[in-house]
Design a protein around this nucleic acid. Sequence first.
DNA 1: CACACGTCCTGGTAGC
DNA 2: TGCTACCAGGACGTGT
Length: 309
Amino acid sequence: MPELPEVETVRDGLDRLVVGAVVRDVEVFREYSVRRHDGGPAGFADQLRGRRVIGAARRGKYLWLPLDEPGHEPSAALLAHLGMSGQLLVRDPAVAGEWAHPHLRVRLHVDGAPSGARYVDFVDQRTFGHLSVTDLAPTPDGAPGGYGSPLPALPEPVAHIARDLLDPALDRDLVVARLRRRRTGIKRALLDQTVVSGVGNIYADEALWRARVHFARATDAMTRPVAHRVLDAAAEVMTEALGQGGTSFDALYVDVNGESGYFSRSLAVYGQAGEPCPRCATPVRRDEFMNRSSFSCPGCQPRPRQGRW
DNA sequence: CACACGTCCTGGTAGC
DNA sequence: TGCTACCAGGACGTGT
């Protein structure tokens, strides 16, 4: 699943391979992939045609490409969320040949990409991802809108999303305070993108294992040091994953060149039910939680007496 | 057929 | 009591 490290891998790829390109044409093969957009797919295409991509920014799992507006400050961006299975593939058919990917949902035809690429393909099997063109609004704090953002601006649909753990403008003490004000379990809070963004099911489980904290630990009973330990662990595991190009155990995630990440080899608990905990060898346990799976080590992460599921 | 799960939306609750 | 902010859980969607 694309979480922060995977989305950052894609952002970095777009930054290097696509920024500077002009969108010549747009093909939408699946209307549902252009959700939340005035004018539908036709309006989407109209707003992109002729526009130059001037940056590649990310906050949490949201990714956007600010678009130039000659004579004005940029005020719009191509916004993308990869959902569970979305990919943005930068392609040059002269090198890699034409292809007909069964899950190709949207294709941007571009001119002038620094890589010489002609297509930016949005491929998405499970269709939880989507693209749209949205207005940019100034950030309340005047800082860049997100990681890699060339502007102190943010797409409107991202305004409610908190900064993420790789964002230099993130205030971790503030996140700890917000966590401890909540009356819920720590994993729920970590997955809530309005508290801190970028953490999904995989890295939540990995971070909690590293911090030796059970997923149901009540946030309002957590001390500041423990809350910091969890955030530090989350930042650490995501940074390591980023260094390896992300996680791709199910082959649904690949970077902009179609290459898989290697972090799946490093997962301690996620998807490891029954396997020995790398720290204490207790078999990893799988629980159903929030209509999804939760993996933890019963030895290192004992259930709290009064947890919040 | 159950399962994978990120986000949005809804209905309900807690607390002031 | 009334309001608001917060919280939990269902729906969405496709393919193995």
